[in-house]
């Protein structure tokens, strides 16, 4: 079965460019504006969307995404609300893959089986759950795969060749290579090392490899995109939401700010291999 994620990576490959994967927090800065941002992403140039499920204790995130999650929760976001956003998005867009990203407890609290069924129903394509390593695959990964959802795994600089097969075993859709040991929003120290790492992962799998963490500009996208099948941008977008606010409220600049940055990054991925 060809999934939306497979089809989108195949399309980008045919265009000889990396895919642009954009992360936004679901319901940030408020539920209506969050929906408007999500709906605007494909036209601005996003190939794949990661939609953040906010959590009170995001242990692997830097300040930008921590604050984005707090804004979404303060605006009343819930798990049902995030799933509802996807449902709404799917009314107009049948092709852009959506991956839900977050932490396990809100899913566990919602109920794993109920969550998987509701995610499928809403039109979700894949999951990234930061605090579920391969050792805990029985919790969510296996049931999600059985239901036809992709389970995208993070690999990191500490995932050595010995461990890679363990991590890749139940990974599907694509592999998300975390460019550094660190939290989201940090700075990449060595771009060269990222290229080597992607090659190392590709020796173990046929899945596309997308690189995230520390990609901030169109130039970063073009550079990192030379060696990878996709680049992931998150903190820059969530931070742009924050900077567009006045007195904590969305303005007419909010959606436009995200659209402009995504368009710029879309230019970057299109220059990557020229």
């Amino acid at each position: 079965m060809t999934t939306r994620i497979d089809a989108r990576f195949a399309q980008c490959k045919a265009e000889n460019r990396p895919a642009l994967v954009t992360y936004v927090m679901g319901g940030d800065p408020d539920l209506a504006t969050g929906q408007a941002i999500l709906n605007a992403l494909p036209q601005a140039g996003a190939d794949i969307i990661e939609l953040g499920m906010p959590f009170s204790d995001p242990m692997a995130d830097g300040v930008a995404i921590q604050l984005g999650g707090q804004r979404a929760l303060a605006a009343g976001q819930t798990m049902l609300g995030v799933l509802g956003m996807v449902e709404e998005f799917r009314r107009k867009d049948e092709n852009t893959p959506i991956v839900l990203m977050g932490y396990y407890n809100p899913i566990y609290s919602f109920g794993v089986d109920r969550f998987i069924a509701a995610a499928k129903e809403a039109g979700v394509d894949g999951l990234i759950v930061v605090d579920l390593p391969a050792e805990e695959d029985a919790e969510l990964c296996i049931p999600a795969l059985k239901a036809g959802l992709n389970f995208i795994r993070l690999t990191t600089p500490t995932t050595d060749d010995r461990r890679l097969p363990v991590v890749l075993e139940n990974t599907s859709g694509f592999v998300y290579y975390v460019s550094m040991n660190g939290v989201t929003g940090s700075v990449i120290k060595s771009r060269g090392a990222v290229g080597e790492a992607v090659d190392r992962i590709k020796a173990h799998t046929d899945l596309p490899v997308a690189v995230g963490f520390g990609i901030k500009t169109a130039e970063d996208a073009a550079e990192i995109g030379k060696h990878s099948d996709g680049i992931v941008v998150g903190s820059v977008l969530v931070d742009a939401v924050a900077r567009s606010l006045e007195n904590g409220k969305a303005t007419d600049k909010t959606v436009a700010a995200i659209r402009d940055i995504v368009a710029d990054l879309a230019g970057g991925v299109r220059r990557a291999r020229n």
Partner: peptide, 12 residues
């Protein structure tokens, strides 16, 4: 119990 941590920490 269990080991619910990010992949970066798993090898350690």
């Amino acid at each position: 119990g269990g080991r619910f941590v990010a992949e970066t920490l798993m090898p350690l």
